[in-house]
């Protein structure tokens, strides 16, 4: 019974870890291209206004 409970807890922990990993991966997937675009815009604006 205790082993079963432990197994269930470990299973839930594993799912939670996978979900967190998925969350990080998903936000990086969209965040990195966005950061690239923002960086390129900032670079252009500095060139144009900063000389």
């Amino acid at each position: 019974m205790a082993e079963g409970a432990n197994g269930a807890t470990e299973g839930a922990g594993g799912t939670a870890r996978r979900r967190r990993g998925l969350l990080v991966l998903a936000w990086l997937w969209v965040g990195l291209p966005f950061a690239y675009g923002a960086f390129e815009l900032a670079r252009k604006m500095v060139q144009l206004f900063g000389g």
Binding site: V30, F34, Y36, G37, A38, E40, L41
Partner: peptide
Amino acid sequence: MGFGGGALIASPW
């Protein structure tokens, strides 16, 4: 906001 940001990525790329 993503729709607005799409050009930000696509333009230099």
